[in-house]
Amino acid sequence: MQQSEEELYKQLILEHNKKPRNFGTLKPCTHLAEGFNPLCGDHFWLYLNCTDDGVIEDVKFTGEGCAISKASSSMMTEFAKGKTLEQALAMGELFHKLVKGELREGEGQEGLGKLKVFAGIWQYPARVKCAVLAWHALRAAINNEKQASTES
């Protein structure tokens, strides 16, 4: 593989693709949303169980998609577990900026943690939507919208 491709498909991404965390369903759950990328066919369902005071107690996802979308879903669920809904939404905003290459030096970089592994993806514009799909679904679930699409 070329160096540039290894930049995109980092070991951590490959590893999450192969062994996604929190993979499965939560029934019953307090929040559920479908994430769909109609152009690629990436298709996931996201389940949340939240406490009354807005803490994500448990989160799972299921579905099918490319390595980028699957690893991103897996790492999103890892991050979200135990966070408040506000924290999760705020991280979604930050992650969007990161994958679009719009994050400025010092702008919340430290809070991203492992998610920084997606920093190089802005160089692959066709793949940015694969990385953000899980976060679209998270926002949809929190806002009680049933479906999130990368095309709206």
């Binding site: 491709e5 995109l8 498909y9 152009l39 490319c66 692959y124 066709a126 793949r127």
Partner: peptide, 22 residues
């Protein structure tokens, strides 16, 4: 175990244009 879009991106890295999707 390999999604078509990952194949498409990696082939593009080698200069090869293919179509991936439905």
């Amino acid at each position: 175990g390999v999604h078509p879009h990952d194949i498409g991106t990696l082939l593009d890295g080698a200069g090869i244009a293919v179509r991936t999707g439905h």
